[in-house]
């Protein structure tokens, strides 16, 4: 690098550039915040959905599954499982675990109450209705 380009020039590029990027990011975040209600349908965030998210989090479902493509890659995507399988299957499936099939990946038995199962389904239904720009590519997730 030439001599006219000094360390303090580089430092100014750093502070100026970082500040600019951060402000732009905040502006985009502001705009996103305004646009989100139409896409996440928060008017449907019922008490059941909120409780369902709590069941989801306190059983660490994300430690095996992805949800909208984020999480672990050990077990099927669940962001669209409501559409793939429907509510009755989801509840029956969770109650029937583990399969005990030898050598097959296992999902634990969580001993959820009927209420918790309903809440979980409400949460998965709400999640499946988020506008995700058409992701996943097909129903298999």
């Amino acid at each position: 690098m030439s001599h006219s380009f000094t360390k303090s020039t580089a430092r100014n590029i750093f502070f100026g550039g970082a500040l600019f990027a951060f402000l732009l990011f905040l502006a985009l975040t502001f705009d996103t915040t305004r646009a989100l209600p139409k896409r996440d349908h928060r008017e449907n965030l019922t008490a059941a959905v909120v409780r369902g998210k709590y069941v989801w989090e306190t059983h660490d479902c994300i430690g095996c599954h992805t949800l909208l493509g984020e999480g672990a890659y050990f077990a099927p995507e669940l962001g669209n499982v409501y559409k793939r399988r429907g509510p009755a299957f989801i509840k029956a499936w969770i109650e029937a675990q583990p399969t005990g099939a030898p050598g097959r990946r296992q999902m634990p038995q969580f001993h959820l109450t009927p209420q918790q199962l309903d809440d979980l389904v409400a949460f998965l239904k709400w999640t499946s209705e988020i506008d995700t720009n058409n992701w996943p590519p097909n129903i298999e997730g």
Partner: peptide
């Protein structure tokens, strides 16, 4: 001098680069 240039590029690209996680989670 190198260090400042590197981290300048890091933050200029990386902060808004967060957007590569905002494709399919309900964000615009």
């Amino acid at each position: 001098k190198w260090l400042y240039l590197i981290i300048a590029m890091t933050l200029i690209t990386g902060i808004i680069g967060t957007g590569h996680h905002y494709y399919w989670i309900g964000t615009p």
